[in-house]
């Protein structure tokens, strides 16, 4: 590599930049392969399982009676069927929104306090991150099949699609500003075109994921939040209809992909 760089310094020009970018891409792929083989994601799954079973809140109960859509306490395969409509809440919910709902209704915890620190840090991972890793892992090998039949599910899907192309904010961005054309990247990061099934499938089948560069689990609610931050928009409420609609639109677009997460990201 060093020799090659020396050659580039002498010859210079666009050709070398292109070759270097190609080379860097290959290196990134090799690195991604390497980190996927020994991912700390399993550590978070273990902690998530502990949290699922741990009595908490004024009611001193665990989340084991939480209905994630397949019946109270059923974890296996639940993630692959989310987001979906929940009759008891009369709205569509994704995993994190549903978990928050259960923390409030089952454990008797205050909504604001519980939602105050849903996005953690490397030093202090959040409860929501570990729980997401644990629940999602119980759907490995199952096809992603979010709810798309209930009128509210259809409404949320349509809203998610409209939001994807809606331009607003200080920089006039929509989701499609970055995720709208094939073969594009921000810096060295490839950008999936998320309204196309072939691009959405590898995404929905690997989120949530362990992010090596920040040593933490990142969830889809976090992804929506962070995109809006970079779009120079105000902050979306955690678990709001906006975030759920986008997650449903994304998951529906990538549906039928067998879940193989939680994944490992750069």
């Amino acid at each position: 590599m060093r020799k090659f760089l020396g050659f580039c310094a002498v010859v210079g020009g666009g050709f070398c930049a292109a070759v270097l970018a190609q080379d860097a891409k290959k290196e990134i792929q090799r690195y991604q392969q390497m980190i996927a083989e020994g991912s700390p994601v399993e550590l978070f799954e273990l902690q998530g399982e502990e949290l699922w079973k741990k009595p908490q809140g004024p009611n001193k109960v665990s989340l084991e009676k939480c209905d994630l859509g397949l019946g109270a306490g059923v974890v296996k395969g639940a993630y692959a069927r989310l987001p979906r409509y929940f009759k008891d809440a009369d709205r569509v919910m994704d995993l994190e929104t549903r978990l928050l709902h259960c923390m409030v209704t089952l454990q008797g915890r205050k909504r604001e306090e519980t939602a105050a620190r849903v996005f953690g840090s490397a030093d202090r991972p959040s409860e929501m991150e570990s729980l997401s890793a644990y629940i999602a892992a119980q759907s490995r090998g199952m096809k992603m099949a979010p709810g798309l039949s209930h009128p509210k599910e259809k409404e949320a899907y349509a809203m998610g699609r409209a939001l994807y192309f809606h331009r607003a904010g200080a920089w006039d961005f929509s989701c499609a500003s970055c995720h709208g054309e094939e073969g594009k990247r921000i810096r060295m990061q490839d950008l999936p075109v998320l309204y196309k099934p072939e691009h959405a499938r590898p995404v929905v089948s690997t989120w949530p994921a362990y992010r090596v560069s920040t040593s933490q689990i990142v969830t889809l609610q976090w992804r929506m939040n962070n995109c809006y931050q970079q779009m120079r928009m105000p902050e979306p409420d955690f678990g709001s209809d906006t975030t759920v609609a986008l997650i449903l639109f994304l998951t529906a677009t990538g549906k039928d992909a067998p879940y193989r997460g939680p994944g490992t990201k750069r």
Binding site: E42, L43, L46, Q47, D123, R124, P125
Partner: peptide, 8 residues
């Protein structure tokens, strides 16, 4: 989380 889990 120094006292966090190990997995082998």
């Amino acid at each position: 989380m120094a006292a966090g889990p190990m997995k082998m």
